[in-house]
Design a binder for these strands. Structure first.
Length: 386
DNA sequence: TCTGGGGTCCTAGGACCC
DNA sequence: TCTGGGGTCCTAGGACCC
């Protein structure tokens, strides 16, 4: 009798996804520091020599960028200059003025996203979407054609072969590289896929946790964000290993029963969550940050215009996806970065822009507009199929 | 020169109902 | 006169993730 097959979960993360997609169409940028972010304005400019027909592209540089954009993705060459995801472009321009700046082209990234996911699905059909550039893959029981169905070989070795095949299939389908880790669960696979980037392949067994996971900063655990990490640090828990040996009562005291218990489990590398192959959206929203903060009094016309436009876009998104929702909400961020939300629940679900606008207006009226407004957003939740 | 846009999940209090 | 629990829905805010 053979032993029960261990659960094998892979996490696949595309390397510098948006930037890598851009390098496919602008190969002349390979090897250069490139960042993706900001608005539509800094589109590359193409000029064609009328005599030779040669096309030359001129790219925007980070230097001189003025605005509120942030970096969504940076190439590894740009990261080496000290800039990276979520950094304001103004700050990035100080650090890496020579870096090339490209606007994001989400339609294009979504197309590549579909391609790499389809390529993975063809080999291992049980995948969980984790956004545009990463997925979990359940590799339990997955075999390649060359794997003998009867052979009692090591499932971990089979998983390594499958992971290699996935990487090859993704490259074949997209021309892009990715990093994959295989582990006993999602939590460990997620941490491990980051250990060997880019183009990585990591196999992490339970026995490897003390050596490979415990030395890492606690922040590397998916679910420990900046707030929790700072609190943990203040309690003397800097690494995952230190957290793994913490007193459960102390964690409960500072983080609550649920999160406290989870922190300990996570640090010990335990995670029973299944790979979820199907899910329904819970909400659809649109929001925008203004180039300059707007005054409720002086910029009333502009605000109304944007407000109606956001409602129309949300309605269009709902229609395209085939949903209607009952809960209509608004979100405001003021110049001091304070964020407030208001929502209201309708009798019946809607996907109509006019109805959404009407409900959103009633929400907006419940907010005191004493400060200038930085961001305005509209959301529809409690979705059902239209 | 601060800090995007699209999401999910959790908590907590109050209303309301049984 | 005083006093139950449990369950669900709604709303607001916040942490976190990609």
């Amino acid at each position: 009798m053979r032993a029960a097959a261990p659960r094998l979960v892979a996490h696949l993360d595309m390397d510098a996804f948006y930037a890598s997609v851009e390098l496919l169409r602008y190969p002349e940028l390979r090897g250069l520091p490139v960042v993706i972010g900001g608005g539509r304005r800094h589109q590359p400019v193409e000029t064609t020599d009328p005599r030779t027909g040669t096309v030359t592209r001129t790219f925007a540089r980070l230097a001189g960028y003025a605005g509120r954009g942030v970096i969504t993705t940076a190439t590894y060459e740009a990261r080496a200059l000290g800039v990276g995801s979520a950094m304001g472009l103004m700050k990035a321009a100080q650090r890496a003025p020579q870096a090339i700046l490209l606007p994001a082209d989400f339609d294009r990234y979504r197309a590549y996203s579909r391609r790499f996911k389809d390529a993975v699905r063809a080999i291992a059909p049980r995948i969980e979407d984790r956004g545009i550039d990463e997925i979990y893959v359940d590799l339990t029981g997955v075999r390649l054609p060359e794997h003998d169905a009867d052979a009692d070989d090591d499932p971990w070795w089979r998983a390594r072969d499958v992971a290699k095949a996935l990487k090859a299939a993704v490259r074949e389908a997209t021309g892009l590289g990715c990093s994959i880790a295989v582990a006993p669960n999602k939590l460990l696979a997620k941490i491990a896929s980051d250990l060997d980037k880019p183009d990585g392949l990591t196999i992490l067994r339970e026995a490897d946790v003390p050596v490979r996971i415990w030395p890492l900063p606690a922040r590397r655990v998916n679910g420990i964000g900046p707030k929790a990490a700072a609190k943990l640090a203040a309690l003397g828990f800097g690494t995952v290993g230190e957290l793994a040996h913490a007193d459960p009562a102390l964690l409960r005291l500072h983080f609550g029963v649920h999160y406290g218990a989870w922190l300990l489990e996570a640090a010990q590398g335990r995670d029973e969550r299944e790979v979820v192959t199907e899910s329904e959206p819970k909400s659809v929203s649109r929001e925008t940050t203004f180039e300059r903060d707007l005054s409720a009094r002086h910029d009333r016309a502009r605000l109304s215009e944007v407000f109606a436009w956001l409602c129309e876009r949300v309605a269009a998104d709902l229609a395209r996806k085939g949903y209607a929702g009952r809960t209509i909400g608004v979100k405001l961020r003021f110049d001091d970065f304070r964020t407030v939300t208001r929502d209201t629940t309708l009798e019946a679900a809607t996907q109509d822009a006019g109805e959404i606008l009407h409900a959103a207006r009633t929400c907006l009226r419940r907010i005191e507009l004493a400060r200038r407004i930085r961001l305005l957003g509209v959301r529809v939740g409690t979705l059902q199929h239209a």
